[in-house]
Design a protein around this nucleic acid. Structure first.
Lengths: 110, 110
DNA sequence: TTGACATGAAACCAAAAGGTGTTATAATAT
DNA sequence: ATATTATAACACCTTTTGGTTTCATGTCAA
């Protein structure tokens, strides 16, 4: 599905509900693919492909430990999405976004 | 590509770079499809399909005006993405997310 | 060392995505 | 009335996606 790097970006990675659920699982506890698979009605191989996509987007990484490969969350790339979204926040103005604007302007003026 | 409603959700809608660019354009000014098409190297028909996806996700709407159909941005569905992301904010803690937590807790306690 | 377990990799498949060009329809301008 | 413009709708093509099953490899335990 993906041998070359950077074939999938973070926006594509989070587009699939299964992959979002995988991220949620890994946010609670790192685990090997067999453990992850238990939570889904699809095959281990299918999960493996989703893990490849998430790995491409640098959202997870796996370290081999004995015969298992433990996957763990790397949420940093989500910051790109958050920043993208933040541009649109001003359109649904609320207390939070106003505060955010104040803080950001404060940052720039010091 | 999509005659039934709700076939595409907001996560899928923003997964494509072209569609994100369309949103950016419409955030500056509402415009008909022909105007949008000028900004891209692909056909009007291709843009029309992207507009369908965005429309399915309720991110845009179009009103007919004479022989034109003017498309305009509806950013509200992006809030779902923002809320999803906010769960992961605590992992890359910074000034903003700390502030946000304070504000949210404040909301709940009053 | 043999068997069981965990994972990876390959081949395959159906459906969806993203694009094309052509045709049809409705509104405007002359 | 007719030509032009703006868009929608249709048919078609190619690549990607999301899934399957099968097979191979490496590790642990008895």
């Amino acid at each position: 599905m993906s041998q070359a790097q950077q074939k999938h970006d973070v926006f594509q990675a989070i587009a699939d509900p299964t992959r979002r659920e995988v991220l949620r699982l890994l946010s609670q506890k790192e685990m090997p693919i067999s453990k992850i698979t238990v939570y889904f009605p699809i095959s281990r191989t299918a999960i493996a492909k989703h893990l490849h996509v998430l790995s491409d987007a640098k959202l997870i990484s796996g370290r081999k430990e004995g015969r298992e490969k433990i996957y763990q969350l790397h949420p940093e790339p989500l910051e790109e999405v958050q920043q993208w979204i933040s541009f649109y926040e001003k359109f649904w103005s609320n207390k939070l976004s106003i505060l955010k604007h104040i803080v950001e302007n404060d940052d720039k003026n010091h």
